[in-house]
Design a protein around this nucleic acid. Structure first.
Lengths: 341, 341
DNA sequence: GCGCTTTGCTAAATCCATTTAGCACATGCT
DNA sequence: AGCATGTGCTAAATGGATTTAGCAAAGCGC
C-alpha cells in the first residue's frame, strides 16, 4: 500500500546519470548531446522500474497538464450528448490527453464554477458543448487557454464545430426527389422562430434554408407545413393525425426523428403503410430510427465526428478562427421507396 | 494574455503575513493560533486578488487532487451510460471534485492505459463502470486509491453499486397481478444462460429470481417463455409475432424496454390494443418507454442514483466492503389496465 | 602547447502550496 | 526575578519534474 512511486530521481540513479539527463532523454528533447549509450541506460532504467512521470509535478513546472475540459450544459439528456463526449474522448485518448467532464445545466453560476475548476487544474483547453442552446453563454473570465465551441457558437471564441445543416437540409429534400416523389410533400416541425434564427441562432435556420433552397431548385412546394414548438413524438403524432383528417400526403419531411416517430404512430393507426403510402425522411439518426419498422431514413447528426473534431481543433497547433462544419451523413433505411433512377 | 496567476505568495504579501499563515488560514486548519485579525486580512487579500489555488502544486504536495476517474467500458452506446455519468458528475460536483472520464471499450490494453493515466494524475479514487459486462476485468496494477465498481462486480474490489434487481423483478410481477391479471402472462426475453448467471454474473439472474419468486407467491405460471439472446426491438417483434400465431396472451412481461418496443410493433400490426387486449410491463425506463402509445409501464434502472451513489461511496470516509443495491422505481404509464383493487 | 570548439553531462533554480520545526514575545505563577 | 506556558507567527524543507546556465574533458588547428 505504502510503496512509494518511482520518481525520475530513481531512474536517474539507476542509470547512473543526473535527473537532468533522464528528463531530457525521456521527454525526447531534440537538440540534446547525450550519448546513445545514455539514452539506452535511461530507457532501460525507466522500463525496469516501471517509471511513470508525476503529472502534477510536470503540470506545476510546465503549465501543461495533458488534459482538457469538456464543459457542457447537459450530459444525460440526449444521446447526442454522449455521442459528442465519446467522440471527444477518443480523440483525446489519441492525443494522450484526458478529459474532465463538467456539467453546468446552463446555469451561469455553475458555468463559472466549471471554468474556474478547470483552469485551476491547468487544463490545456476548454470545449464548450451545447445540447440545447446554440449561442452559448461563456462566463466572462480570463481564459488563457484555447477554446473550441462544440455545437454552439460564441462571439468571444470564434472556433466552433457545427453540423453542416444547410447541406443536410438539402439532402433530405434531394432524397425525397431522388426517390421519385414530386408532390404532396408535407413539412413536419416548421417553426417560424427557429427558421428565422430568432430562437436559437442561425444553426437550425440553416437547415431550413437548405430545405427551402433544395425545394426551390426542384421546382417543388410543400403541400402543407405543420408547426410546433417542441420536437417530441407526441407533437409528431398529433400533427400527423390532424393532417390525415384533411389530406393524404405522399411524404413527410420531419425535422427530427422524434417527430417522425410520432408520425409513424399516427400513420400506423390510420392504416397507412410506409413507404408505399407515405414516405418519410427526417433528421438526427436517433437510436429510434433503426428501431422503427421500416427503418427510418434520416440525415444523421455526426455526434462522434463533431466531438473528435473539436478536440483535434483544440489541440492543433494552428487554429484558424472559423466554424468547422461536419458533414451530416445520409442514413439509408426503409422509409423511402426504392430509388428509381 | 500573459498575466500571471495570483499565487499564495501574492496573497500573503498583500496581507502582510507569511505564506504559511495564508495557507493555514485559507485551508481552514483548525488548531491554528492565528488571530481573527489575520484571518480577515488573508481572506480579504485572497478575495481582492481573486486568488485560486494551483491544484497541481497542491496535488504534488498532498497527493490529493480532488478528482476522480470514471473508467467505463462504453460511454455512448446506451443512455444508461450517460445516466451513470450524469449522476456521478453531480455527486462529484457536490463534493467539489472533478471527474475524468475514460473509455476502454472493454479492451484490457486500454483498461491498463486508463488506470495508469488516472493514477499518474493523483486521482483520489476510481470508479469502474460497466455497461455490458457484469464481472469486470480490472487490470492487475498496484492501485493505492479507493475503488468502487459501478453496475459491475470484481473480486478484487468488493464495494459495488448495483440495481436492486431482485426487488425489481418482483415488482414487475406484482404490478401485473395488482392490475388484476392472473393468467396468460408471457415472459419475453427469457435467457437460460443469463438466468443461471452463467453469461454475465448474478446480477441479471437476480431479476429472474425476483420474477420467479413473485410468480410463485401469486400462484401463477407463465403461459409461455420466449427466448432470445439479444434484447433488441427486432427480437421482441419477431418473438411476439410468432407467439400471436398460436396464442393470445393477456400480458407480456418484457425483460427490457427495447423488447417491449418490438412487441408493441407486432401487437399494433395484429390489431391488438394495449392495455385492453394485451398489457405490458418491462424493465429499464428507456427514453423509448415514454414515447410509446400508450406509455410503457416499466421498472426503471436508477442510472443517476447509481452514479451518484458510487461517488458518495468512493469519497465516504468509511467504506464497508459490500454491494449497495439501488431501488428500481416503478414508472407507471399506460400499458397496464387500471388497478382495480 | 595554446586557444577554441565540441561533446557529454550536471548543479541548482524554478513552479506553488503545504507542513515541520521553532522563534520571539507576552503572560502567569511563585 | 526566574521559569514555565501560551500566543502569534515565520523560515525553510518538501513534493517531482523541467530548464537554465555552465563545467570538465576531449579534439582540433596551427
Amino acid at each position: 500500500m505504502a510503496k512509494k512511486r518511482v520518481t525520475l530521481a530513481d531512474v536517474a540513479r539507476l542509470a547512473g546519470l543526473s535527473t537532468t539527463a533522464a528528463s531530457m532523454i525521456l521527454t525526447g528533447r531534440p537538440d540534446t548531446r547525450l550519448s546513445p549509450e545514455a539514452h539506452k541506460r535511461v530507457h532501460d532504467a525507466a522500463a525496469s522500474l516501471g517509471y511513470r512521470p508525476n503529472v502534477a509535478a510536470r503540470a506545476l513546472r510546465t503549465d501543461k497538464s495533458r488534459s482538457i475540459a469538456f464543459i457542457s450544459d447537459y450530459v444525460a439528456t440526449t444521446r447526442f450528448a454522449s455521442g459528442l463526449i465519446r467522440g471527444a474522448l477518443s480523440a483525446a485518448e489519441e492525443a494522450k490527453h484526458v478529459m474532465l467532464v463538467l456539467e453546468t445545466g446552463g446555469e451561469p453560476a455553475r458555468e463559472i464554477q466549471a471554468v474556474e475548476t478547470a483552469l485551476d487544474r491547468q487544463v490545456d483547453g476548454l470545449i464548450f458543448a451545447a445540447m440545447r442552446a446554440r449561442e452559448v453563454f461563456v462566463p466572462d473570465l480570463v481564459i488563457n487557454v484555447p477554446v473550441v465551441m462544440l455545437n454552439g457558437t460564441s462571439a468571444r471564441f470564434p472556433i466552433s464545430v457545427l453540423p453542416a445543416e444547410y447541406e443536410g437540409g438539402r439532402r433530405a429534400v434531394e432524397l425525397l426527389v431522388g426517390s421519385g416523389i414530386k408532390e404532396d410533400i408535407v413539412l413536419l416541425g416548421h417553426n417560424a422562430k427557429q427558421e428565422e434564427g430568432l430562437f436559437r441562432s442561425e444553426t437550425i435556420s440553416r437547415r431550413f434554408m437548405g430545405i427551402r433552397d433544395a425545394m426551390a431548385d426542384a421546382g417543388l412546394t410543400f403541400a402543407a407545413e405543420l408547426s410546433c414548438w417542441n420536437w417530441e413524438p407526441n407533437f409528431g403524432y398529433d400533427l400527423t393525425r390532424k393532417l390525415l383528417k384533411t389530406q393524404r400526403p405522399r411524404a413527410l419531411l420531419c425535422l427530427n426523428d422524434r417527430l417522425a416517430f410520432g408520425a409513424y404512430q399516427a400513420l400506423g393507426e390510420a392504416g397507412l403503410r410506409t413507404p408505399e403510402d407515405v414516405a418519410l425522411v427526417s433528421f438526427d439518426n436517433d437510436e429510434l430510427a433503426s428501431y422503427l419498422r421500416p427503418g427510418l431514413t434520416t440525415i444523421g447528426l455526426p455526434h462522434e465526428k463533431m466531438g473528435s473534431r473539436a478536440v483535434e481543433l483544440l489541440l492543433a497547433p494552428s487554429r484558424l478562427p472559423q466554424a468547422d462544419l461536419i458533414d451530416m451523413p445520409v442514413m439509408m433505411r426503409g422509409s423511402l421507396p426504392r430509388n428509381r433512377s
